[in-house]
């Protein structure tokens, strides 16, 4: 019994660890350094009217992620160089949204203003709140004035100089073709859709068919019998007709239903006494009434 309890506890603990790990993957690790402008001569102006380098962080997840408590740094040897304060609404990044930081070395101007400036040939990294786990990093090569360096598509893997600087907006500035439009262009008459979708529908239901055709056989296998030594058994006589059909069951159920419903209290001037069960409830009990003296 104790052993069983230990096993159950171990399974629950393992499940909790796995769930916790999954939750972690759905949050901070979904953040990406998305776009960087190192040389800002005539580009984006911050709320103080100054032009400085800026960094765009993108939340790739479909849930809100709080960047508060994490670290931004331009020095790999010092991962905790700038601590992003917690609890500010700015640090809470909506699903598939952005937050901007200004690399102006003026941290007194607000939490979006970092304590370092971006340099050509330098690097930039985002660290988890433990100061050890790197979430994302980018090596900054030679830079062009007023041209941002970023992922060609939000959260994508390919980096390059972007045609337009897009602080706080989608990096891809071309015409966005929806999945439906792409599908329609490839399959203008719907034949492909019919073939693919019907195949999937049939596959799903055939799979269910195969499983349920054999389910009874599978769960009726006696595993103990399978692995134990064969014993000579006296075969019990089988009941006539191996399976009872649904119709027979329905007839039995109907007969029982009619029998039960035929039991009534008053029949043709003959009275029968039937016990009426009452469910006990403390709400209506006098024992627990308010007139009792509280102890």
């Amino acid at each position: 019994m104790k052993r069983k309890l230990y096993i159950a506890r171990a399974v629950i603990a393992l499940a909790m660890v796995l769930i916790a790990g999954h939750g972690y993957a759905q949050s901070s690790l979904d953040l990406r350094i998305n776009e960087v402008l190192v040389i800002n001569d005539s580009n984006y102006v911050d709320t103080y009217g100054r032009r400085n380098g800026w960094i765009e962080i993108f939340n790739t997840a479909y849930n809100t992620v709080d960047i508060g408590g994490m670290y931004l740094t331009d020095d790999p040897a010092n991962p905790t160089k700038y601590w992003i304060p917690k609890g500010d609404p700015i640090t809470s990044i909506a699903p598939r949204n952005y937050v901007l930081f200004f690399a102006d070395s003026m941290p007194t101007r607000g939490i979006q203003h970092l304590n370092f400036k971006l340099k050509e040939g330098g690097s930039l990294a985002l660290f988890e709140s433990n100061g050890r786990t790197m979430i994302d990093a980018v090596k900054l090569g030679p830079q062009k004035p007023d041209v941002s360096y970023g992922r060609l598509e939000d959260g994508g893997v390919e980096w390059g100089f972007l045609e337009k600087t897009t602080p706080g907006a989608n990096n891809f500035t071309g015409v966005i073709v929806t999945a439906g439009e792409k599908f329609g262009a490839m399959d203008p008459f719907g034949v492909g859709m019919a073939v693919i979708a019907m195949s999937v529908v049939f596959f799903a239901l055939i799979l269910l068919y195969v499983v349920f055709k054999n389910t009874k056989k599978i769960y009726s296998i006696d595993l103990r019998k399978l692995f134990s030594k064969p014993e000579v058994e006296v075969e019990a006589p089988k009941p006539a007709g191996e399976e009872i059909s649904g119709e027979v069951n329905a007839a039995i159920a109907l007969a029982l239903h009619m029998y039960v419903n035929a039991l009534h209290d008053h029949e043709e001037t003959v009275l029968t006494i039937k016990k009426v069960a009452r469910t006990y409830s403390p709400w209506s009990s006098k024992i627990y009434g308010l007139r009792n003296v509280p102890r």
């Binding site: 529908v201 239901l205 055939i206 068919y209 055709k213």
Partner: peptide, 10 residues
């Protein structure tokens, strides 16, 4: 009881 009927649904 008659899983082949699933195919009609498909």
């Amino acid at each position: 009881s008659n899983p082949k009927l699933m195919l009609i649904g498909a």
